[in-house]
Simulated assay, not measured.
Amino acid sequence: MFHRPFFASFIALGLASCSGDLSALDPAGPYAGAIANLWWIMLAGAGAILTLVLVLFGLVLFRPGFGRSLSVKGWMIAGGLFLPVPVLMALMTYGMAQGEYLIGAWQNEPVMARVEARGAMWRWDFRYPDVGSDVATMETLHIPAGGVVEVRVTSADVVHSFWIPRLAGKIDAVPGHTTVLRIKADVPGRYAGICAEYCGTGHAGMRFTVEAHSPETYRQRLTALTAEGPAP
């Protein structure tokens, strides 16, 4: 039997693991929030199925003779269809609704800023075409908070994966192709980003920082970057 302090520590440790710079379960924007909500709903559905299975197991274990009136075929139908199918159907319906929300949000929300992200072993470079193709930063992406930012992602060498867990889902960076991802930070702050596709020996260190500024501070930052001259 678990002691209460041990059980409480176990729960606290589990909850603590749901937060952090790279936690998709600690969203800081609506797109990441939709993904986190789907994860929690899937966890609840899996928990419901597990609970039903454990209840049946307990009845069979502690109530001898339970279920003998039901044939093997009946158990297969009850356990394989009636228990999991309603939960899985509910999860699928919710997942499709979240997908429609994300697609609708992409189509209906105006874009506040556009940036270009290029992965190269083993770093990320960013350019800001709204103010000029020569304005660039390395390892740090500047965006305005409170608005949609369109990120056009590509790669200079191998396949990488662009991911800011607290702001959006991930998308591949493919050599010779451009993929588009939209991100949004609700409030100013710093957010961590990584390459989520193994790309060689330096993969673990292929990280970057997203600095979300207020709109006014963002404009000032771009002005300062422009004054610094062309990117190397």
Rank of each mutant, 00 (worst) to 15 (best):
Gln98Pro: 01
Ile194Asn: 02
Val159Trp: 06
Asp130Ile: 05
Leu141Phe: 02
Arg127Cys: 07
Ala48Val: 11
Ser9Lys: 14
Ala196Thr: 07
Leu222Arg: 10
Ser133Trp: 07
Gly47Asn: 07
Leu43Gln: 13
Ser23Arg: 03
Tyr128Arg: 05
Phe57Gln: 11
Ser71Gly: 15
Gly45Leu: 02
Thr217Phe: 00
Tyr191Ala: 04
Cys195Gln: 01
Pro84Gln: 12
Ala212His: 07
Pro215Ala: 10
Glu197Thr: 11
Arg221Ser: 01
Arg152Lys: 11
Ser71Met: 09
Asp172Ser: 13
Gly47Leu: 08
Ala12Leu: 14
Arg68Leu: 13
Ala227His: 09
Cys18Thr: 14
Pro30Phe: 06
Thr217Lys: 14
Trp39Thr: 04
Arg123Lys: 12
Ile183Met: 03
Ala78Arg: 13
Pro165Arg: 00
Glu228Gln: 15
Pro144Glu: 01
Trp106Phe: 13
Leu22Tyr: 15
Ala44Lys: 03
Ala16Thr: 12
Leu81Arg: 08
Leu222Ala: 08
Leu88Gly: 07
Ala44Arg: 05
Leu56Glu: 12
Leu43Asp: 08
Asp186Ser: 08
Ala204Leu: 13
Ala28His: 07
Gly229Phe: 03
Ala12Trp: 06
Arg127Lys: 11
Pro165Cys: 05
Thr51Gly: 12
Arg4Cys: 07
Phe7Asn: 09
Ala204Gly: 06
Trp163Pro: 01
Ala117Asp: 02
Ala36His: 06
Pro230Leu: 08
Ala46Arg: 04
Ala231Trp: 07
Gly99Val: 02
Pro64Asn: 09
Ala90Cys: 15
Thr223His: 12
Ala16Leu: 15
Arg207Ser: 06
Asp26Met: 05
Val153Ser: 00
Ser214Val: 09
Leu50Trp: 04
Ala8Pro: 04
Trp39Lys: 05
Met96Cys: 10
Ala8Asn: 14
Phe208Pro: 02
Ala28Leu: 02
Arg166Ile: 01
Gly205Leu: 05
Asp172Ile: 00
Gly169Gln: 01
Ala196Asn: 15
Cys195Tyr: 03
Ala224Ile: 08
Val148Lys: 07
Thr179Tyr: 07
Gly14Trp: 09
Ala117Lys: 04
His3Tyr: 11
Thr154Asp: 02
Val158Pro: 00
Leu70Val: 15
Gly229Ala: 05
Ala48Ile: 13
Pro84Tyr: 10
Val85Gly: 12
Arg114Cys: 00
Ile183Thr: 03
Ala204Pro: 01
Gly147Glu: 05
Asn108Phe: 06
Ala212Leu: 10
Tyr31Phe: 15
Ala32Tyr: 00
Leu15Arg: 10
Leu181Lys: 04
Ala173Tyr: 00
Trp122Tyr: 12
Met76Lys: 12
Gly147Trp: 03
Trp40His: 13
Gly176Pro: 08
Cys199Pro: 00
Arg123Leu: 10
Asp186Val: 03
Ala97Pro: 02
Arg221Gln: 11
Leu167Phe: 02
Ser133Leu: 10
Pro110His: 04
Tyr101Ser: 08
Ile143Met: 01
Gly20His: 06
Gly80Pro: 11
Leu38Lys: 06
Phe82His: 11
Ser133Val: 11
Leu225Thr: 08
Tyr94Ser: 08
Pro144Lys: 01
Ile49Thr: 11
Ile143Pro: 02
Thr51Lys: 07
Met112Gln: 13
Glu150Met: 01
Ala44Gln: 05
Gly146Thr: 05
Glu116Cys: 00
His213Phe: 14
Gly95Trp: 01
Ser69Ala: 14
Phe7Lys: 14
Asp157Pro: 03
Arg118Tyr: 03
Trp39Asn: 06
Asp172Val: 04
